[in-house]
Amino acid sequence: MHPAFSVIFFTVSSGAGFGLFALLYLADLLKLGGGLTPQQVWVGGAIALVLIIAGLLSSVGHLANPKNAWRAFSRWRTSWLSREGVFAVAFFPFAFGYVGLSFLDLGLEGLRLALGGLATLLAWITVFSTSMIYACLKTIRQWNTPLVPANYLALGHYTGALILMLVAAQGEVELAPYYFLVLAFLVAAAFLKGLYYFWIGSPVAVSTINTATGFTRAQVKLFDAGHTHGTFLTQEFGFQLARRWALALRVVVFLAGFVIPFLWLVQVGPQAGGGAGVALVALLGVLAERWLFFAEARHVVNLYHGAQRC
């Protein structure tokens, strides 16, 4: 699949935002490390909202005909994309309520937490919906797996946790729980990503050039695709990454996304928390991860453009 920057940014940014929001809320609710200050809560919340909104705007920018974007809420019964939109939008009033109340400090604690709780639920559903946009596609074997929502959720929370740790570091709160939260999500995300890479590497291609053409008893090769230059299909789906680049990038994903942050965090210890540096390196890793997520996905339509299996 063509790794469109708008979509990569969207999923990474909103994923981090939703992850941050959910963890922020839980930390707030459970008074993690002694409890965040209201200021930390609303600053953290604001960062989450900015990330989410930036992501969503970027995804709208991906549309060729954005004037009809409003219609995207209409098909939530069948479409994960629509659901994502609906839930994302539904998330906002609650999220704003929660962040707003934290900011205004009106003492409506029950309401504040209730709103935050609902928003968190919606955040999770939204991230899940986003991931299901990809995971529901039978056309792309590399996506059509529960590992995709698992990955999205884990990575969203991991990046969210990193930011949350930055927020936490700005106050009096005890950093260690936040630190261990990061480490926990780091390990989970790394594990799930590893699993994912292992899984997509397994040679269980169901769709082949043979099933695509119906000629299942002999070698089939594409002779001519019927057009000399690119088409929408080759541009959108034809992206092909050489194996060695894919491997190199996976190394980057693991190094930047997990290994370096892990060593760094271990090195600095729970009290220092690592600062923005770790978050930036990890972000780089996750961007690479997301880029690869698209780049390594082989749509079955490639079988009609010369691929032997997808």
């Binding site: 060729a64 056309t139 929408f232 959108e236």
Partner: peptide, 22 residues
């Protein structure tokens, strides 16, 4: 009149039957 050009349907189509008009 309703399409917003998100390409998503083309992702769901195994047969390459959908093409976006830029």
């Amino acid at each position: 009149d309703k399409c917003m050009g998100c390409n998503y349907c083309s992702w769901a189509c195994p047969y390459g039957a959908r093409e976006l008009d830029r």
